[in-house]
Amino acid sequence: MAKKPAVQTALHKVIMVGSGGVGKSALTLQFMYDEFVENYEPTKADSYRKKVLLDGEDVQIDILDTAGQEDYAAIRDNYFRSGEGFLCIFSITEDESFQATQEFREQILRVKNDENIPFLLVGNKSDLQDKRKVTFQEASDRANKWGVPYVETSAKTREHVDKVFYDLMREIRARKMEENKTNNGRGKDKNKKKKLKCVIL
């Protein structure tokens, strides 16, 4: 079993969240297959896997594209639990979707119970500047409040699409390394404690 992690490439699990119609699937498909889908089909749940090169390291990314609609909330929780990083998407052309990010953030924190979960706030549809309803300032203020990065993307022009995925993967990777360290530390402590007990006895 000890050999396994060495051979296996790292796998990072990313979950796309956000209201319906903000472009979660569009971003995912653009990232996965370099294609832009114009017509809108609500997603129930879709999952993708891709091999990518992250800073010279072969890794795999699992992307779970969730439903924006509330109807699928029951399924969504099962996925949230196993997600390692989250892209929280809204459309810069729709204020409601921006307001909804608050709700999504809370939901994720509740399920993961972890303030530092890798998380990016993403304002999509940046190509539609003339229809902008959410200012950059507004969005980055919220991101600052949460302590997460804010990035604007366009699934149509592919602007910053790779960036959000790669940035998130880096955060996940950093997080995992940190976790391993602390876990190792704790594990050793435990052993020591046990030994000590024995001596006393």
Partner: peptide, 9 residues
């Protein structure tokens, strides 16, 4: 797969 588990095991 975390290494802590490995240790425990």
């Amino acid at each position: 797969e975390s290494s802590a588990d490995e240790e425990c095991k």
